[in-house]
Amino acid sequence: MDNEVKMQAKNVDFFYGKTQALKNVSLDVYTHKVTAMIGPSGCGKSTFIRLFNRMNELVPHTSLCGKIFLDDLEINSPLVDAVDIRRRVGMVFQKPNPFPKTIFENISYGLKVNGIKDKLFIQQKVEDSLKKAVIWNEVKDRLNDSALKLSGGQQQRLCIARCLAVETEVILFDEPCASLDPISTAKIEELILELKKDYSIVIVTHNMQQAARVSDYTGFFLLGELVEFGKTADIFTKPQDSKTEAYITGRFG
């Protein structure tokens, strides 16, 4: 695996109160690759992905041991600003969550919050981001309409565009297609494959087939442990661990 490491988890334990959700997980996320996390409900995969942009610290009574790096930066170090981490490591959730604002404002908001005032720059950035998220042609004539009028699939691509506008480096997808129909799902999957040329991507999915289709690397989680991690083609054709084999062939449990 001679890839450049973009993010790295080192010996991570994570607790909700006294319940241990992650046990000594170490994993590398490679630059310009799609890394998928699969595993049954409650295995810790969503908890794990949320560590990459410090979303878990918003949950009370949680604690973390171990280290997480973005490039060489240890993201939980007291000197690091969580907001800056969340700009560099964007997140797209299961349910599309556009702001109750116009399509344009959804994208420009992040830029304005980051202190950018140049209107021409903002306009250009909005257009570029919407184009990259392959939604521009569908919304270019109604940028001032409410984002809530868009379909679920369009809202999800708008949320992706919102990440792209603020020059994110890593995009975390937490079940991005769980609430979408098959056509919208296919569009998001194609988009993920396009985006990996410029970004590093981590995706959590219940849909094993989706992990197989879009990812370069796959990690299988079970009961808070990373059971197996490797190239997706290897995981799905010749897994090394019998637990991984049982899960991906549906013999689990």
Binding site: A212, R213, T237
Partner: peptide, 9 residues
Amino acid sequence: CLDLLALQQ
């Protein structure tokens, strides 16, 4: 072919 069958359904 095996990879395509396993990964792309």
